[in-house]
Amino acid sequence: MLEARLEQASILKKVVDAIKDLVQDCNFDCNDSGIALQAMDNSHVALVSMMLKSDTFSPFRCDRNIALGINLNSFQKVLRCAQNEDILTLKADDSPDVVSLVFESSEQDRISEYDIKLMDIDQEHLGIPDTEYAATITMPSGEFQRICRDLSALSESVAIEAEKNAVKFVCNGDIGNGAISLRNHSSVEKPEQNVNIELSEPVALTFSLKYLVNFCKASGLSGSVKLCLSNEVPLLVEYELASNSYLRFYLAPKIGD
């Protein structure tokens, strides 16, 4: 059986809020290492990969591999019934028809119990190769969100160009063009504004802004975001969570003929 207790319901609320416009029905794969999810959007252009390690939960117990097939719309409806500060416990049998959620208020003596009916989801799993990326950019998640939102008003796609000490986001649209450059920046006083660019070779790739704007819905999960790029491979956008957990998005590039 599965029993996983989260100190704060907000983590799961934010994860589901962040991915539910990209993927609809997902298997939450539970085993003794934690709860994982991998799902592609309908067009097979973007992929969500979530890992909530067992250390994220306290306690965490999962004796067998259990796949919880959940409709994310339904999940969101139930998670909205939890206060952000509530303690959240997920429970399921070994061959479950439902997943149970218990929300406990730490301040009040209130316990809320919900069940969500599970579905059989036949999901394609992709093997994602370990990649040594040519460029890794760490920047404030809010800054990345602003850039994607601003450029999406001008164009459908953005070119991300990483070179030594600088990364440039460039778009060309019908009404005009835009470009935002960021340089390495580190401040002891405001480390949350740091930009770090690690580069082994220059990279320039073009991506659909529609998907990037969608990924940025995860900005509330982490103050910083990591962009990993190599020429002619999908972009990795990673939001790191506590206890080595993460929410990752992969986006296939647009490539010329």
Binding site: M40, S43, L126, P129, V233, P234, A252, K254, I255, D257
Partner: peptide, 14 residues
Amino acid sequence: AKNQKTLAAFFTKK
């Protein structure tokens, strides 16, 4: 013009 690729062009099915 650039074409949108799908992930299948880069990742293999498990």
